[in-house]
Computed example of a mutant assay.
Amino acid sequence: MTDDALKRLSDEGVAIWLDDLSRERITSGNLAELIEHRHVTGVTTNPTIFQQAIGYGGGYADRIHDMALRGVTVSEAVRMITAADVRDAADILRPVFDATGGRNGWVSIEVDPRFAHATDATTAEARHLTWLIDRPNTLIKIPATRAGLPAISEVIAAGISVNVTLIFSLERYREVMDAYLTGLEKAGQRGIDLGTIHSVASFFVSRLDAEVDKRLDALDSPEAKALRGKAAVANARLAYQAFEEVFGSADGTTVPSRRWHALREAGANQQRPLWASTGVKDPAYQDTVYVTELVAPGTVNTMPEATLEAMVDHGTVTGNTVTNTYEQARADLDAIRKLGISYARVVQALETEGIKKFQQSWDDLLSAVRKSRACP
């Protein structure tokens, strides 16, 4: 086995981040090993990851017990536990952060998903998590809901780096980029050094295929079957085209927007596209497809460890697989629409479902901590 595929991926300009975190992964040295041997340069988390780590994993019982004795509420106990994991992971990744001038070495933590439709609460939670973790290489994850967009601008304007999550539609992605630029402009007006602010926009991939394929299967036609597994990659590739329209292309063939040009001259950093949900949900698909088909400079791919190891074992990186594919990507989405599958309804359903799943994971996490506090 070799990690040459991961090295080639990095050489193509794709940052490899791990989509998982736990106390055991930190204390066992596993995270440090992945950084050293698997080219991992960042970590992302979400409520589901923490629910699995704390609800079913080890290493948390003593902390939970001590906080119960001190009368710490369950919600605050969860915040403190997850913040501690993120803080320790950020310390492990700090050398990467320093070596790359802040481009990589990040650890993401999400605001309480119950605030997904509350702008002010989301903004307040982002400020609180930034204060609580107190590490420069922490990204605060904010969902790209309607209420999340102004929160993104306000948090960026306060000089806080953000991972915008749960992006499914191209229209919403353009609104996310606009919110980022608005936040940078406000930060500049407040005298904040724009070079200290970073952001990624997490565009979810595999979930789109899962939802569209379900609708294609219901049609039970040869035309529908031929389009299975095409929606997610096409959508992500068109998202990268939208990214180039704002921030410019790596080869200079697409010039940046005037608005971004002015911010870049003031020292601002690009908001990089991040491919999230890259583990396949259909076993019929190649388990590395959402990595190998989305290779483009200036992107991040956050992978569960199973996908990371699949790349090590049999992943093939052949160069840039995104640019020069936009015409085919648009044709694939158009073909799906012509079969009567509404893109707008699909992406709205996915956003609603994504928020609901994270809220359920958070509720399950609270229940697990509550149950652990009750144990002798």
Rank of each mutant, 00 (worst) to 15 (best):
R337E: 15
G101P: 07
R103N: 13
T145L: 08
T302V: 09
D62G: 02
L216G: 01
R272Q: 13
L263Y: 06
G159V: 05
A124F: 02
E353Q: 14
A158D: 14
E309M: 15
D209T: 05
W260Y: 11
D4M: 13
G102A: 11
R25N: 11
S22T: 06
S257E: 01
E185W: 01
W260A: 00
A306T: 12
I192T: 07
L6C: 08
A201R: 04
A262R: 13
R23I: 05
T278V: 05
V107Y: 01
A147W: 00
R272G: 10
P113K: 09
W106G: 08
C375I: 13
G298F: 06
V369F: 08
N235E: 08
E154G: 04
Q189E: 15
G159K: 00
F203V: 06
R94H: 14
E154D: 15
R258Y: 12
A218R: 05
T2K: 15
R114H: 09
T44V: 02
Q328R: 13
A147F: 07
Q270E: 14
A224C: 10
A157M: 10
L238I: 07
G148P: 02
A296V: 08
M80I: 11
R237S: 05
L9E: 06
L216E: 02
L194N: 08
R63Q: 14
D91M: 10
D112Q: 10
G55N: 04
D98E: 15
L21N: 02
A90P: 04
F204A: 09
E33R: 13
N46Q: 05
S161V: 04
H65S: 15
A151H: 05
Q359E: 13
S28Q: 03
A374K: 10
Y173Q: 09
A310I: 05
D334K: 11
V289P: 01
T288W: 02
S202K: 07
A32R: 03
A151E: 03
A306C: 12
A124N: 10
S367R: 15
A284G: 12
D213F: 06
E327P: 01
V347C: 04
G55R: 09
G354R: 01
V155P: 05
D313K: 14
V200Q: 02
A126L: 01
S10H: 14
T318H: 11
A179S: 14
H198Y: 13
I26F: 01
S75L: 13
Y240W: 10
R94K: 15
D334A: 14
G248F: 03
W362Y: 12
I35S: 06
N269K: 04
T44A: 07
E305G: 08
T48K: 10
A306R: 13
V291K: 06
M80Q: 14
P273D: 00
T44K: 00
E154H: 14
T122V: 00
A276I: 00
G101M: 04
S28M: 05
D20G: 06
T119I: 10
A61Q: 13
R63P: 01
M311L: 15
P273H: 08
M80S: 09
A157F: 02
E305D: 14
P283Q: 03
Y326A: 11
C375V: 15
M1Y: 12
A374N: 09
A226F: 02
L31E: 09
E351M: 12
D178F: 12
I142Y: 09
T182K: 13
V78E: 04
L184V: 01
R70W: 05
S10W: 12
